[in-house]
Design a protein around this nucleic acid. Structure first.
Lengths: 242, 242
DNA sequence: AAGTGGTCTAGACCACTCT
DNA sequence: GAGTGGTCTAGACCACTTG
């Protein structure tokens, strides 16, 4: 039927379909974890052939927005789950026991200019700041400073810290309804300041690896700025290039 | 026509086709840079529908083995070209002028066990070892130690070093017929030994970033082990996770 | 104008998962 | 067995590149 006209947005019809489907997902028409309607149904609804809708869904799968499972269906992806910070570091006894977390401080204040800019906030905006220590067994391994935008993360600004558990992202979801969908980590090397060195039980000026993370939700808004510091000699990461 | 039987290797017919095409490419039926026959011709030759052959070629394109250009054809990829080592480092005046190279030494000797293992060589095999300095302007920036397997790279073991130019991979291709197709870089952190520090004009024990590279040709054989060292404070790298 | 890859369709059958 | 995504086909038209 619809023979000509490739359509408008990117270029191809399946590209446009992917954009449309992405919008419906972001607007919450199907919550994370839920199954989308069958390909046939979606194709009919949008008035395209089955293969075209498949192409669109495959695109969204490549982008990590949905997950396709043979014989079961197509599901909205439920964001980043685990504690992927430790993939940058090798601590001797890791892998045996899961890393634990301890919140060192929690306060509200204006952020440095680069942090505010990363979050898309005004330089004078008040944000939520967390300092956190991550441990393997009893050994302090990573020091983190985390900035969160404040109307959104108000539920974390009060209440008991003990009930938080070891992972933040599941907490973001339960308390604030925020799904972390994508993150960008910038790696560099530096030296520990005195206070940072103290909690990590290293000497001031000790070489450290710094991972600056910017995390985004499904809609593409930045919802977290995080700086992680760890002993440089424990750092290890592998990149494949083609 | 050929309705049933999904075929053997991986599972799908297009998967098997991709494997077959990969073999033909690796065996040199079409040299790097050359154009493959048209999809129609290949599909007819293998007795499959056009769409199936397209799927197979798309797969090879994803894997970086071929490159598809609209309206022109499908081409065997010519391997890694540039000097992608500098993507891990930010030196102030980089980007303005291209980095230069200076070979510090060239000799034949047995390699440490891990190097030999990485190259798939016996621990006692004699290999070609290069030490190289990379400069931006007149400023020494990176120090490299490069190990190459020896029957293959014999053409580099003799002759004038001045004619080598600033990039190794094009040289590998011209002199030895080796295409670097894929590489794996392992990033870690350490301190400069005395000799390394001297050529980089830094102090002994200065913090450094270490990039350990393992490079492979189209057939998947490791053809280079390289260790690159640079000032840790100049290191910078970004990872996107989903 | 001819040749290439890119998109779209319509319909068939296969493989997996759940009940 | 019913429903899902995965594969394959056959043929049409579109968009880009080159002579």
């Amino acid at each position: 039927m619809n023979r000509q006209l490739p359509s408008e947005p990117g270029q191809s019809r399946y590209g446009a379909l992917a954009v449309a489907m992405r919008a419906r997902i972001v607007q919450g028409e199907w919550p994370p974890g839920a199954a989308l309607p069958a390909e046939q149904a979606l194709a009919a609804e949008h008035g395209v052939a089955l293969g075209t809708m498949r192409r669109a869904l495959d695109l969204l799968a490549e982008q990590g927005l949905v997950e396709r499972v043979h014989g079961r269906g197509t599901f909205v992806k439920a964001g980043l789950s685990g504690a992927p910070m430790f993939r940058f570091f090798r601590f001797g006894d890791a892998g045996v026991e899961p890393p634990r977390s301890r919140i060192l401080s929690r306060d509200k204040m204006a952020a440095p200019a680069d942090i505010a800019r990363g979050l898309g906030a005004a330089p004078s905006d008040t944000l939520l700041r967390l300092k956190r220590l991550r441990l393997v067994g009893d050994r302090p391994c990573l020091y983190e400073e985390i900035w969160l935008p404040l109307p959104l993360f108000e539920p974390l600004a009060k209440g008991d810290l003990v009930a938080w558990g070891d992972l933040l992202y599941p907490l973001f979801l339960e308390r604030c309804g925020v799904h972390v969908h994508r993150a960008v980590d910038a790696i560099s090397f530096g030296n520990l300041a005195a206070t940072q060195a103290r909690v990590l039980r290293l000497s001031t000026g000790h070489p450290c690896a710094r991972v600056q993370r910017q995390a985004f939700d499904v809609a593409g808004r930045c919802i977290e700025m995080r700086t992680t510091l760890g002993d440089a000699s424990a750092f290890h990461y592998t990149v494949s290039i083609t």
